[in-house]
Structures are given as C-alpha cells and as structure tokens.
Computed example of a mutant assay.
Amino acid sequence: MQPDLLGGGSGAPAAIHRLFFALIPDEAVAKQIETVATGVAASQLLRARMVRRSRYHATLHFLGDHHELRQDIVRAAISAGGKVQASPFDLVLDTATAFHGREPPCVLRSSEEPAALQTLWQDLRQALVLAGLGSHISRSFAPHVTFAYSRGGLPPSTRVEPVAWRVEGFALLHSVVGAGEYQLLDAWRFQSR
C-alpha cells in the first residue's frame, strides 16, 4: 500500500493545493517568452521539461502548499490584494539563467529590476502581514519567469533577446500540484496616475 503523503488516509497521495500571487503576461508577451525560451533551449542543447506558455508567470508571494483549498487564506489574500495601489510599469526580461534544485528551474530574469516591482512586492507583503498571513510569505524576492526544468546540467547565465512586458496588474492563483492549469481566484488592475 502506498503511503499517504499528506495524511488523508485513502492510500493515494492527497492533492496539494498551492496558492500564490503572480504577475501574468498577456498573450503577446507569453508568445515572446516562449520564442526566447525555445531559442535558449536549442542554443544550450538543453535537456529539459519545458513549461507550457499558459503557465508562464512571475511569482510575487507564495502562500504555501495545503491539504485543501484554504478558504480562510483565500479570503485574507483577496482582502490584502484589494488594498494594494500601484501604477503600470515596464519589466524587461533579458537574461536566461538557472536556479539550483533537483530539476533546476531555467528562468528569464531582468538585469535591472524596476523600482516599481520592488515597491509592489513590499506593499503586497505589508498588506498580507496586516491580513494575518505573515507566516505564509517569504522575506526575499527574486523575480523571474520559469520556462523549463533542466534534466541535465545547469545552463550558464546568458543575455537573451529582451522581452518587454508592460505589467498592468497582478493575480491570486490556485493550482493543484501536477494537475495542469492554474485557477484564477482574483485579479487587480493597476490604475494609471
């Protein structure tokens, strides 16, 4: 009998529900990311599991993995998200690199992180703390878009054709690990000032 991974007792691994805030590229930007990612994979002879275009995102705050979709966390997160005020800003993804791990994530990053992105992360973090979710969030931020998971060595950091992304909002997402697409729980558009 296979052990239950999260204590559900049925013999089958229990579903892992993941909650996080993220920036989601529009279709045009997602296509550009895909083109750059495909080019990096080909030029580096990367043996990797590529991420589907519909799953591209840049995580702002990870709210944890849970046995079930925690409605208390969802409600607090939606309340916090609604308190954040920001204006649209530009993010340029111009570097491909990889993080360490069992299946190292291959990512696109910005060589110059916009101040508005750091402010957004800090403002959302503060709203989450005030909403009682401080124990669920990270104290550091390394903005990136994962495009693949390497099945070989780590590719070297390299400059790529820049992807210009006009960030106009953020979203709260839910996923069941290994089950496919993300579920959009709520989203907030920035107001031009």
Rank of each mutant, 00 (worst) to 15 (best):
Q2R: 13
P3H: 11
D4L: 05
D4R: 08
G7A: 07
G9S: 10
G11E: 11
G11W: 07
A12R: 14
P13T: 09
A15I: 04
R18D: 08
F20P: 02
F21K: 02
A22K: 00
L23T: 01
L23M: 07
L23V: 11
P25T: 07
A28H: 10
K31N: 12
K31R: 15
E34H: 13
T35A: 13
T35G: 07
V36D: 02
T38M: 09
A42P: 04
Q44K: 11
Q44D: 08
R47V: 11
M50P: 00
V51S: 05
Y56D: 03
Y56K: 06
L60V: 09
L60N: 01
F62W: 08
L63D: 06
L63S: 04
H66S: 08
H67I: 08
E68F: 15
R70V: 07
Q71Y: 04
V74N: 05
R75E: 15
A76Y: 05
A77R: 08
A80V: 00
K83H: 12
V84Y: 02
V84M: 07
S87M: 09
S87T: 09
S87K: 10
P88V: 05
F89P: 01
L91T: 07
T97D: 14
A98T: 08
F99S: 04
V107R: 01
V107T: 01
L108Y: 01
E112F: 08
W121C: 04
Q122V: 04
D123T: 12
R125Q: 12
Q126I: 07
A127H: 06
L128A: 05
A131V: 02
A131M: 05
R139N: 13
S140I: 03
A142H: 15
P143H: 02
V145E: 01
F147H: 01
S150G: 06
G153Y: 02
L154D: 06
L154Q: 15
P156H: 06
P156V: 04
R159P: 00
E161W: 03
P162E: 09
P162S: 10
V163N: 05
V163S: 04
V163F: 03
L173K: 03
L173V: 04
H174A: 01
V176L: 06
A179C: 09
A179S: 13
E181N: 10
Q183H: 13
Q183Y: 08
L184A: 07
L184Y: 09
L184S: 10
L185G: 01
L185T: 08
D186F: 06
A187S: 14
W188H: 12
R193H: 10
